[in-house]
Design a protein around this nucleic acid. Structure first.
Length: 279
DNA sequence: CGCATTTCCTGGTAGC
DNA sequence: TGCTACCAGGAAATGC
């Protein structure tokens, strides 16, 4: 297990899931403690995890879902800065899970400097207190992400397509980085109302989303800052980003300067020439 | 109900 | 150097 600094979207969460699986699968939780965090909805029912066995390590969008043997489910969302690690962090420790494991991996630490993450227990499959998970669209890399469903979802919203992608409703797992990258690939202006995305470009957007996520998964995600103390691998997709973080640099496709605007309160990067507004 | 805006939170950094 | 001000953003809450 490693620590890493990312803003976790689907590729980063899946990379983390792949590392967690061999560690956590089948382990029993012996105890759980909240540390430097107040009880509340972000840590709901955590005490229930104790004495249950982790029967699977799965993911839905950006949520890690760990079904437990007693009929519950442990849900971990990393937010912006959440880290799951067997190494005790120096600060910002929020939760520790004691596992029936010997040696250096016997405690799982959840560290979360900005406190945007969540670490809670629900009855298995009961997402009524997690509306984003409850209303989440299809997994982008599974067969359920069809052109027909995607077209219908886009038609339902007049919101700017970038902001709509971030709701997780048309498709799961996109965050600020990959939404910008996918729209650039498909040559769609981020401000275009979702239902005005030309029919001729919907398939391109669907493909772009899959391509960007697959390429990032292969690179083990994007690591945004230059942690020098990290041991272990660091996602390298940062080098392959075309627009995110590239404002005022030339568009790799046409050479025109990349613009940065605020959309839905989020930094949004696009090429004003390749990505024409549809209004 | 639909959509836009604000809130949460703190490390990093720009500017003085 | 040390201070202030501001920026980053996933999801939920709030506002209209």
């Amino acid at each position: 297990m490693r620590e890493r600094s990312v803003i976790p979207e689907l590729p980063e969460v899946e990379t983390i899931r792949l590392e967690l699986e061999p560690w956590l699968y089948g382990k029993t939780i012996l105890g759980v403690q909240l540390v430097d965090a107040l009880p509340g909805p972000k840590y709901a029912n955590l005490e229930r995890a104790s004495s249950q066995r982790i029967t699977d390590v799965t993911r839905r969008g950006k949520f890690l879902l760990l079904p437990l043997s007693g009929g519950d489910e442990l849900i971990i969302h990393l937010g912006m800065t959440g880290v799951v690690t067997p190494r005790r962090p120096d600060q910002h420790l929020r939760v520790q899970l004691v596992l029936d494991d010997e040696g250096p991996n016997s405690i799982l630490y959840f560290c979360d400097p900005r406190r945007f993450g969540r670490f809670l227990v629900v009855p298995r499959g009961d997402y009524s207190n997690l509306p984003t998970l409850q209303n989440m669209g299809p997994e982008p890399l599974e067969g359920t992400f069809t052109k027909a469903k995607f077209t219908q979802a886009l038609a339902r919203s007049g919101t700017a397509v970038k902001a709509y992608l971030l709701t997780q409703k048309p498709v799961a797992g996109l965050g600020n980085i990959y939404a910008d990258e996918a729209l650039w690939r498909a040559q769609i202006h981020p401000q275009t109302p979702a239902r005005h995305v030309p029919v001729s470009k919907i398939a391109a957007l669907q493909s772009a989303i899959k391509e960007v996520l697959i390429a990032s998964l292969e690179a083990q995600g994007t690591t945004l800052n230059d942690y020098r103390t990290v041991n272990g691998n660091v996602g390298t997709y940062l080098e392959e980003l075309n627009v995110y973080g590239h404002s005022n640099e030339p568009c790799p496709r046409c050479g025109v300067q990349i613009n940065k605007i605020t959309l839905g309160g989020r930094g949004t990067h696009f090429c004003p020439k390749c990505q024409k507004a549809e209004t």
